[in-house]
Structure formats: C-alpha cells, structure tokens
C-alpha cells in the first residue's frame, strides 16, 4: 500500500473508533454525556462561596438560612468540602466536613461547637432534609458519576431555544429517589432542571437551576448556577439556594480539609 493513502485510512479509522459516531445504546450515550459534562466541569481547583437558603412553606412564609462553603477538587478520589453554618444562630459555627468517594460512601464529620466535639457521622442516610429545607443531603452531596447509572432519553430545547440533553439517572446504592430526570444544557454542560422521583416512582421534587455565571479557569470556561429553586410537588413547600461572592480557581490547603481544621 502506498504511503499516500495513510492519512485517509487514519481519518476513516478515527471516524469509526469514536464512540459518539458509532452505534451506541441510550445507556452508553447517557454515560458518555455524563462523563463529558464532568470533564467540562473539572479543573476548577478550589471554590469558596457564601450561601443563602430561603425556606418557603405552603403558606408562603419565609425563613432564611446562611452558610459558607469551601470545596477542594480532587479528581482521583472525590472532592473535599467544608460547610460552616452561620444562621440560625443556635447552630452558628457548626461545621460539616465531607470527603467524597467515587465508589464508596462519603466520609463525613460534624463539628459541634458548644462541645468542641468532632463527631463522625454516617453519610448513608442521604434522604434526610438539609436544615429543614426541601433539599436533602443527597441533593447537595457529591454527584460522582460512578454512583449512578445513566440513560439518554432524547435531545430537547428550552423555551428560549437552548439545546438540551435529557438524561435519566438511577442511583446504584441506597437513595431517597428511584430516579432523576436531568435536563442538561449543551452549552453550559450543567443541568437547567432536575425532576426527582420518590421510591414509589412518583414525581417528588423539581429543581430549577438559573443565574448561571461563567468562570474562566486557565483555558476553560466553567459554568456555575447561582440559584437553585427546589419545589416539592407533594407538600407544596419550596426552598431556594443562592450563592454570593463565589470564587473558583482558589488554591486551598490540604489542612483546610482534614479533621484538625474543624476544631
């Protein structure tokens, strides 16, 4: 074979080798999209933010919770995060340290300031409400793709014409949900909406992600939603999580995320 055909052969073999272009099942496509969005969101190094959570009951009465958070990226094992509660005042100073794991339950510790006690807690019970809100610990915890089975359902569009991938995500381990349906923006590589289905398979909650901002980290554009509006369809209660003073690309120290840092 003449060497002049080599570039053509290379192009043809690459074309057929690329998983996106060969025949793939909805599960394979779902997983590929999940991995791709993960890769697009990686590389933020570290993050700090002030957070506010507004709890709205069925009668529209509002209560506000405040906290700060730090996240350190660890693409080998799973991210590490530290959340410090500021309001209500009786829990001010309470800290929650989480070491995420891709294939195992997360390690979690709680620091109780009045007792100066660092207590290891079980992260298995993820369906519990986070500070009385409509968010559960599972909603706010690590979303490592290894913990879910993915399935592409179809492509779609938002009302404004933004292209979407619509994916089904089923937890592999114990969860408060039977499945989640994610509406992932093809430009932001992040969800704009997630429908959560309870263990009976009925729609329980809907989270709407908005106020996206783009952060330039190195040569990457990373999008982050600054508002998540969670509506509980069954109880009519709502919670709104919002971020302020968010910074990405922050260089955290390892010691900021070990149990010593809690005291």
């Amino acid at each position: 074979m003449s060497i002049k055909f080599l570039p053509l052969l290379t192009i043809i073999s690459l074309f057929f080798a690329h998983p996106a272009l060969s025949k793939e099942t909805p599960e394979q496509k779902g997983l590929r999209i999940a991995k791709m969005t993960r890769d697009m969101n990686e590389g933020f190094k570290g993050e700090t933010a002030e957070m506010e959570m507004t709890l709205i009951d069925a009668y529209n009465a509002k209560t506000v919770r405040e906290m700060t958070s730090k996240v350190m990226e660890d693409d080998k094992e799973g991210d590490k995060s530290l959340m410090v509660f500021l309001n209500p005042k009786d829990v001010k100073g309470t800290k929650m340290l989480t070491h995420s794991h891709k294939n195992d339950d997360d390690d979690q510790w709680l620091f109780l300031p009045s007792l100066r006690r660092v207590k290891r807690i079980s992260s298995r019970n993820k369906s519990s409400s986070f500070m009385g809100s409509e968010f559960s610990y599972e909603d706010l915890g690590s979303q490592e793709i290894e913990k879910y089975n993915y399935k592409w359902i179809k492509d779609g569009k938002t009302k404004s014409g933004e292209k979407l991938w619509i994916l089904e995500r089923v937890p592999k381990k114990k969860s408060g949900y039977s499945k989640m349906v994610m509406y992932v923006s093809q430009t932001k590589n992040n969800p704009v909406k997630i429908d959560y289905f309870d263990r009976k398979g009925e729609l329980l909650k809907t989270a709407t992600f908005s106020d996206y901002k783009v952060y330039k980290i190195g040569n990457k554009n990373i999008y982050r939603a600054h508002k998540i509006h969670m509506k509980n369809i069954q109880t009519k209660k709502q919670s709104i999580f919002s971020w302020k003073n968010r910074k990405l690309g922050v260089d955290h120290k390892d010691r900021d995320f070990d149990t010593r840092s809690l005291k």
Binding site: D107, I121, S122, S123
Partner: peptide, 9 residues
C-alpha cells in the same frame, strides 16, 4: 475508635 458500617457507627 469510631467506625461507620453503613447506617451503624
């Protein structure tokens, strides 16, 4: 010594 076994500590 503290160890987590699922829902049990």
């Amino acid at each position: 010594y503290q160890q987590v076994f699922g829902d049990l500590i």
